[in-house]
Design a protein around this nucleic acid. Sequence first.
DNA 1: CGTCAATTGTTTGACAGCAGACGATCGCCA
DNA 2: TGGCGATCGTCTGCTGTCAAACAATTGACG
Lengths: 158, 158
Amino acid sequence: MPTRTGARARTTYFPRLAAERPDIALCRASTAVARAAEAAAEQHGLGVGHHLVLKMLAAVGPCSQQVLSEELRIDRSVMVGIADELEKAGYVRRERDAQDRRAYAVTITTPGRRALTRAEKGVPAFLDQTFAALDPAERDQLTALLGKLLATDSTATD
Amino acid sequence: MPTRTGARARTTYFPRLAAERPDIALCRASTAVARAAEAAAEQHGLGVGHHLVLKMLAAVGPCSQQVLSEELRIDRSVMVGIADELEKAGYVRRERDAQDRRAYAVTITTPGRRALTRAEKGVPAFLDQTFAALDPAERDQLTALLGKLLATDSTATD
DNA sequence: CGTCAATTGTTTGACAGCAGACGATCGCCA
DNA sequence: TGGCGATCGTCTGCTGTCAAACAATTGACG
């Protein structure tokens, strides 16, 4: 026992803490998950934010950056960079909205749809690996609980 | 209804996304929770990290910064600052470990215990408010699920 | 028509977090 | 004894995020 003498009692304090402070557990879990997600996403050349923007555009049609920000819970300032990069990659078009010339109408392009399809392909494997500790029923439970939590989160100030 | 014309159809896309991507739901929920926790914690002059360090010291006795880092999932670099501030506030003592002069033996002081007691007092109210969307049973479910997730997280590389 | 608050997209500055490198120290081994 | 890899605490630089300020535009109201 050269390294790690008895002093390093592997305190195992954390489980106790996690049980007592769901907020801490939530944050710690999310950082690990977020890191894994970003790594998995960038294998396709898209960050998580880019992926989500494409996904939402494909699902609901052209949007302003503002709507994208609010729905995806991504800051407006950050959305600027994401839109810039997506446009530069040719995955979206940015045109001024005719009805409201302040806003852009961000539209997904055909290459964008292809990139989205490619990125989506990796998602199930990533989820299976990241949530391997939970069986399908538990995963559904977690999703439902988080959904409840988010439905009343502080961003819903209106 | 001057503002918010009909064009803002309140897409309500997010719930669908959250149901499909538990990783995103986790991250979004955690940022909201983390912000609230930090705000609540700093009412007592302690950040969340400071609070956790005091809590762990009170629970398991003197520790090295390394052990504190690992158990609390706080980076070593960040722990330096936390320990500095706690020491300056008189809440912990930092002495060199006699057995291993590289490491500190961080010990909580009596003022530190008082500060901890004060900070702990606010926790139940904060949790009740932050997890108001969940009844006690659901809160326990969430805690259990997160515990499972964290037990096998990537930091457990050993 | 002119004014004014509100909204959209953007830029800027501040700040937290992390990776990497460093000196000091430890344990091990020749 | 001396050397060598590993560990602890620290510092530095980078990245990503957020708050605040800004110009352009809109809609409402006098």
